[in-house]
Design a protein around this nucleic acid. Structure first.
Lengths: 200, 200
DNA sequence: TGACATCACATACTAACGGTACGTAAGTTG
DNA sequence: CAACTTACGTACCGTTAGTATGTGATGTCA
């Protein structure tokens, strides 16, 4: 037993490489991390990295995707069990901000991702995960009559931009967890911009 | 006449270096630009660049500062002559979005700046220029009773984040100038979030 | 006004890093 | 078991950020 098939090896190796990439990129930032450093942290050599990934940007892409999928999962969990769509959106926003307490999330998802992969690609990836949840939530809230109709695409992006900025804002506070409450409050107030008069 | 003093030479050389940096960084992005490339575009050698600037990041810092000062100037001009503070904020937001039609502004101020200089430093620079205008405008609108009071620091950042995201959003439209109208409309709606019930 | 100091660069070089070429052992398939 | 593929390791190349040093023009002072 315990036969190490090639697929097993490949999968575990790529997994460790991605883990190392997330750790190093998340801690030191993309430009300060060398591929040799990632390889060393993963216990392999640069050759192994280049066998599994096309290059340094592909490495960041994998790290970004991993973090983004995880964030989408957290958003889903936070929104589950909400009484209505607007409450789900509020819970999702709170979870979004909470995820930004992780420095690696800020570094990879908010800073290096857009700069290295480009804004366009980053938003396309997010549009399939966390941002899709946000957008669907806003749409459902409109359907429920809790939010005023409007251009949902633009509105989602405005909210996303505010959330990303708020997430970075948390980091520079001495006590980010305490700041989380104040920021969440203002974000809730912002959501009221699109609420129907009766819905407040 | 036309005595070229050393201070003159120094000033004009640094000016051309910064101009070249803005052009190249703005077109190709920070990582794809070499210092030799900037030096060549400025008509000097790498030695001259390193004589005037501490390194590549200092070069981006100078480009960032230049663009940011220019943006602050545009915001001031746009807001001048507004009947009240809230109108001034709306005009400033529109001008902010308009400035994002320039690819170099997006690349340097929105993408490379935060990634290379760090979010903290970027926001500190902006806090002395365009963001100061935004914040003072919001404060004045609160004083005039047009906006609900609240945490002005957080609120300014939420608005800034939404504006930056909206600015990037403009770029991927086939006709950015047309999209500008739709985005500006939604941003105005967002400002209503903080407007007093009577102020709408 | 001539000697000397300083400034504004140019040139030559080093070290590090992204990426490629190639070799090899382990695994897979007919 | 032979032919082939996969999963790496090793050695190398080109580029680039940064440094060390040289040089000529400019400013200063006796």
């Amino acid at each position: 037993m315990a036969r190490r098939t090639q697929a097993d090896r490949s999968e575990s190796t790529t997994g460790e490489i991605v883990d190392a990439a997330i750790t190093l990129f998340g801690r030191d930032g993309y430009p300060a991390v060398s591929i040799d450093g990632i390889a060393r942290a993963a216990g392999v050599t640069k050759g192994a990295v280049y066998h599994h990934f096309d290059g340094k940007t592909a490495l960041l892409r994998a790290a970004f995707l991993h973090q983004e999928q995880r964030r989408a999962l957290l958003l889903r969990e936070a929104a589950a069990g909400s009484p209505d769509a607007l409450a789900a959106v509020r819970a999702g926003c709170a979870a979004f901000l909470h995820s930004c307490l992780d420095p690696a999330v800020r570094q990879i998802l908010l800073l290096d991702g857009p700069a290295v992969l480009g804004w366009q690609e980053v938003r396309e990836i997010e549009a399939e995960h966390s941002v899709a949840l946000l957008r669907r939530g806003l749409g459902a809230a409109v359907d429920e009559g809790r939010l005023r109709p409007g251009d949902l695409g633009i509105r989602t992006h405005l909210l996303l931009g505010a959330l990303c900025e708020a997430g970075m804002l948390l980091a520079r506070h001495a006590d980010p967890t305490a700041a989380l409450a104040a920021v969440t409050r203002e974000v809730d107030a912002l959501l009221d911009a699109f609420a129907t008069p009766t819905g407040a």
